[in-house]
Design a binder for these strands. Structure first.
Lengths: 198, 198
DNA sequence: ACCTGAACACCGTTCAAGT
DNA sequence: ACCTGAACACCGTTCAAGT
């Protein structure tokens, strides 16, 4: 019943998010999104030069909604390794909040058109440990690969299950923490001087 | 000038590998592959039920060619951490040997139709350290995510450069070793009793 | 065992033109 | 500032029929 108004760029991104969550990344097409907005697909090219750029904006919105509120480094004086684990969990939760969220962010990162906030979140946490810049960069990239890979698998299985599917092992939630913990332990061991915490 | 013969399943996979390497994953379409074989696209469905299954077979062939010859665990008595690093490097080299190799293997693993050899290679190496089964599983998955993520980025940059592109930082080769080394160090630290080597 | 021919239901993108 | 209409050059997949 709403009056039919013309769509702003933000309207397009918001609607894309809804289509993503309802139908998945594979069905988030320019034609379908146009139809959902009551508009021809060509109208979308007024806001975005191509689909990749649109997807980049959608991925950034997923991350903004999931990470936006809380500060990258929490107020309490957690030890650095606790801060890192929490950052990884926040990124994971942000990805799990939308269907195919992990795959979307991995994709847009691959063509360099979005998803930067995910790496920034992790890097800010790692920097808390007082490591030198090269190590922060290496560890953050490695942790993000872990988060994206692990969450992508987890999301695939969750979505397969919710369709009532095969019923393979449900993959314990704790395996994410274990994987991240392994890398954090390596970080701790690699630089024996770096336990700047409680 | 070869006589035009009918194509076996292996012919199709071999030709798909050639198309992949020459034109990339995005241009590896059923129609293009058919044309390359001198055949209508529908003929391919005699060998494969769908494109995903074909891609799974192509990914398995990439891994078989890259990992096939050498045994999973080398003859010399390397310490377990050396064995793990070598396994990760072998998988990485296998992926780098074909255009978009990392993206291909990541994709087919996501829909569960191939690429199992990559995880097996890493898991066999980790098992060498004498860890219990859960830890082997967790560490192997984490290491493979590192290898796929890192190699995927590296490959994107290498291919962008070879097109004569932007010329961002070339990403030192040693960062792969550093990332894997971080996780291996965590593995070493997590289980204080496990240094079953020289 | 392998292939054709023809169709079905889609894609992303461009561009002149409208309001 | 936003949208239409129409086109271009593609996709994956199915299926009856041929050899």
């Amino acid at each position: 019943m709403g009056v039919r108004v013309r769509n702003s760029r933000d309207d397009v991104v918001a609607r894309a998010l809804a289509v993503l969550d309802a139908y998945g990344l594979g069905d988030l097409t320019m034609r379908r999104l146009g139809a959902e907005l009551g508009v021809r697909p060509s109208a979308l090219y007024h806001h975005f030069p191509d689909k990749q750029t649109l997807l980049g904006a959608v991925a950034d919105e997923v991350l903004a909604r999931g990470l936006g509120g809380a500060p990258a480094t929490p107020p309490g004086d957690l030890p650095w390794d606790g801060v890192v684990l929490e950052a990884c969990r926040r990124v994971r939760d942000a990805l799990l909040a939308y269907r195919d969220g992990a795959e979307l962010v991995a994709t847009v990162r691959a063509f360099g058109l979005g998803g930067a906030a995910a790496l920034e979140e992790v890097a800010a946490a790692v920097a808390t440990g007082g490591f030198d810049d090269d190590l922060v960069a290496t560890a953050s990239r490695a942790l993000l690969h872990l988060v994206l890979g692990h969450t992508g698998e987890e999301q695939t299985h969750l979505q397969a299950q919710s369709v009532g599917a095969i019923g393979g092992e449900p993959r314990p939630d704790s395996d994410f923490d274990a994987a991240v913990g392994l890398l954090v332990a390596g970080l701790r061991a690699t630089t024996p001087g770096a336990r700047a915490d409680a």
